[in-house]
């Protein structure tokens, strides 16, 4: 898939549903997939996340941006069950997520990737992929001992994995240890592996970070294709070109709160956002950003 393909038309149709949405923090969406209310997370004296209200529209690509230390990764962690907020409730596709552990969140269809990719180094690429599939009969120890029970399902999973490897251009690495992949290939693998779970909402934490420019375009294409096949995408990104290129809606966080929402054209002109970037990224709470980086490792 080339980046020059006129995907703009698709972008505009998907974004069309958002044209009437108010461009203010916490604005209601026509068909929210994820709704968060009063999410607060403190570390010691620091309030890392304080999100009053947020709705993520179904079937579009939402970018989550903000200066270092804005609390984006922490917010991801909270939504996906990897961290627990001090206060707040959220529901995903109508299901309350508050008390669910991370693996349950994933089984409900909200799947995330990590800022620092987590390739399972000593498993082969195909094993990485097959791991992603849900509802595997053979994942029970006793049933696992008897191959006839899970063999057929395993073949289906493998076929699905191979198709995805083809799509993500990793088929030639099929039998290699995932640890031997390059940084960009790991990003691709992680995205493909997440797709094996057949998620309805996929949360990508800096999918382009550390990827060489040659791969960036193909990654962007893949992200857009996720939306085009009906999935909802939320991603954290620092590169404004990327945000401009693929996002239908942008949510801006600073110092833990949401300070602006809107399509990228409007965000670029928003004075609060400019202040947040220019004002704080140089002075104040750089430290939280450092924690962010560490927290993801």
């Amino acid at each position: 898939m080339s980046a020059d393909t006129p995907t703009d038309t698709v972008t505009s149709t998907a974004a069309d549903v958002l044209t009437d949405v108010q461009q203010v923090p916490g604005s209601p969406k026509p068909d929210p997939m994820l709704t968060a209310d009063g999410i607060i997370r403190r570390f010691g004296g620091l309030t890392a996340v304080d999100v009053r209200h947020l709705e993520i529209q179904r079937g579009v690509i939402t970018a989550l941006i903000g200066p270092n230390g804005a609390g984006k990764t922490t917010f991801f962690n909270l939504m996906t069950g990897f961290d627990t907020p001090d206060e707040g409730t959220w529901n995903f596709d109508g299901v309350a997520m508050g008390k669910l552990p991370a693996h349950q969140v994933a089984r409900n269809g909200m799947v995330r990737t990590f800022q620092l990719t987590k390739a399972l180094s000593r498993l082969s690429v195909i094993e990485n992929m097959k791991l992603g599939a849900g509802h595997q009969k053979g994942e029970n120890l006793f049933r696992g001992l008897v191959k006839p029970i899970w063999g057929a399902q395993e073949r289906e999973i493998e076929a699905r994995a191979d198709a995805l490897l083809d799509r993500f251009k990793l088929a030639h690495m099929r039998e290699e240890f995932a640890g031997t992949l390059s940084g960009g290939q790991r990003k691709l693998l992680e995205m493909a592996r997440a797709l094996m779970t057949d998620p309805s909402l996929i949360m990508l934490d800096e999918p382009m970070a550390g990827v060489n420019p040659a791969l960036t375009q193909s990654l962007l294409g893949h992200v857009k294709s996720l939306r085009d096949e009906g999935r909802t995408v939320v991603f954290v990104e620092h590169d404004m070109d990327v945000v401009r290129d693929i996002s239908d809606w942008v949510v801006v966080m600073a110092e833990g709160s949401i300070i602006a929402e809107g399509p990228h054209e409007a965000i670029g002109a928003n004075q609060t956002v400019i202040d947040a970037y220019l004002g704080t990224s140089h002075d104040a709470p750089l430290d939280l950003g450092e924690i962010d980086v560490e927290g993801a490792s």
């Binding site: 570390f43 962690n77 990897f82 961290d83």
Partner: peptide, 13 residues
């Protein structure tokens, strides 16, 4: 209280 009496909560993820 896995972080100990004086320890702080730890970030995961």
């Amino acid at each position: 209280r896995p972080q100990g009496i004086l320890g702080r909560g730890e970030r995961i993820g």
